[in-house]
Amino acid sequence: MKVHVRIKRFNPEKDRRPYWADYEVPTDPFDRVLDVLHYIKWNLDGTLALRRSCAHGICGSDAMLINGRNRLACKVLVKDLGPRITVEPLRGLPVIKDLVVDMEPFFSKYRQVMPWLVNDEPPPVRERLQSPEERARIDDTTKCILCAVCTTACPIFWGNGEFLGPAALVAAHRFIFDSRDRAAPERLAILAERSGAFKCRTVFNCTDACPQGIEITKAIQDLKRAIVLSRT
């Protein structure tokens, strides 16, 4: 099966603006888009730049806009896209080259919500125990792989760089509702500010796009409720 691939390319050292490049690629229907991009890079044009690491949908490196939707290139099969495939870099982040974007604005939002366990109480002899029910509370949001698919699918993030974005809110949720954590008030105070949870307009683009199937909008609503009712 031959597919026609269009890639939005940009080399800041040569190009004044991004341009579309077209490639014909022989594929198997069960190839992933990542395999198609590998074919192009290894056989047709070695200058194509892209990120990928594990290639099995868990490292979160190869997020990109494929046929108009944010996805991981290693989790989409050619047979599900048809004979024409369009690939663009993630929206809302500066393009470094071709499909590689600058992730720093994304991670700077992530760091703002203190995404680490805060607990100054003396540690127990063995470990800080958590009941299955307590663990279930954060089951969904612990699945995040920080691929940035959700945040760069969010129109509020596109329009306004201030917004923390869905991924940072998911990280905040994961620690705020963790029974072992003690910094919920600090985090919720950060989220109550202008660029925090209340900037979410419940567009649901994040939930639709998440390759891990996290119910992101629901998690953000949990956070809003915790702030308004002032309890976790």
């Binding site: 919920a184 008030p185 950060i190 109550a192 949870a197 809003k224 702030i227 002032s230």
Partner: peptide, 17 residues
């Protein structure tokens, strides 16, 4: 667990309003 929260700012109040 029960945690008292004292949110900063008033953006959350605007949302509630």
């Amino acid at each position: 667990m029960e945690t008292r929260v004292r949110p900063n700012g008033w953006e959350w109040l605007s949302w509630l309003y």
